[in-house]
């Protein structure tokens, strides 16, 4: 055990504060937490508020699910092959985004740019499939103004699509900043926030493809 020992804040052996000089307890007594932790925590709070916004859209969708006003219902509209492809693209992009984090951690410019480029292309493919699906729905007379069900569907899924589009712009910015400014600390903090955002978007998509597409495509008599 040559590693530095974790000293508990309440341990009387280490004086009133309980922390040896230069040590950080993570419980406040040892001074501020490292900036990496604080940046991640702040962005985590933002992500949770974003998730709460999505939960309101989910609630609206669940309440309005059967209000089709004589228009097409979910199981008549959804094409699960499209959903499967979108899910695969987004899951793969979450993995490559993790690879980009590792490349940044190991200061490899080549692999950072490659991993971010692949992440961006997968995200772009996801968005293109979603745009194609939406325009297909609208062409079949199932646009957002057709029924309360479709309004809530387009709001929920479209809001996620807008998030992914904005994240793609952010991704391009990160690639440019790494290229132009190198692995500066402030840029690595920005990248930490970006990667958290990208992973969180995939979490929202997990809820959407399961609870909107898969549950929605079940025959109506199987739904509660």
């Amino acid at each position: 055990m040559s590693a530095p020992t974790l000293r508990l804040a309440h341990d009387p052996a280490f004086g009133p504060a309980g922390i040896a000089p230069g040590q950080v307890s993570g419980h406040g007594a040892g001074g501020p937490a490292p900036k990496r932790i604080i940046v991640g925590y702040g962005f985590w709070i933002f992500l949770l508020s974003d998730v709460i916004m999505f939960s309101a859209f989910f609630a609206a969708y669940a309440v309005l699910f059967k209000s089709t006003a004589g228009g097409p219902a979910a199981h008549e509209l959804f094409d699960l092959r499209n959903t499967a492809a979108q899910t695969a693209f987004l899951l793969a992009s979450t993995f490559t985004c993790g690879m980009a984090s590792l490349a940044v951690g190991h200061r490899s410019m080549k692999w950072t740019q490659i991993a971010l480029l692949v992440t961006g292309l997968l995200g772009l493919a996801f968005i293109l499939l979603e745009v194609r699906e939406f325009s297909d729905f609208i062409a079949r007379g199932a646009g957002p103004s057709r029924s309360a069900f479709l309004s809530s569907f387009f709001t929920l899924v479209g809001c996620h699509g807008i998030h992914v589009s904005v994240a793609l712009l952010w991704l391009g910015t990160m690639m440019a900043q790494f290229y132009a400014k190198g692995f500066r600390q402030d840029i690595r903090y920005r990248f930490l926030c970006f990667s958290l955002f990208w992973h969180a978007l995939d979490i929202v998509w997990v809820a959407i493809f399961n609870l909107v597409y898969l549950v929605g495509s079940l025959p109506p008599e199987l739904l509660p």
Binding site: G26, A33, G40, Y41, I52, S55
Partner: peptide, 27 residues
């Protein structure tokens, strides 16, 4: 479950509470 993740987990727990209230409460 690291000590430096404690705040994140508490915030997550609060977020889950609000999400459940909104979704199941509305339904």
């Amino acid at each position: 479950t690291d000590p430096d993740n404690e705040n994140n987990i508490l915030a997550l727990a609060f977020g889950v509470l609000i999400v459940c209230l909104i979704v199941f409460g509305s339904l």
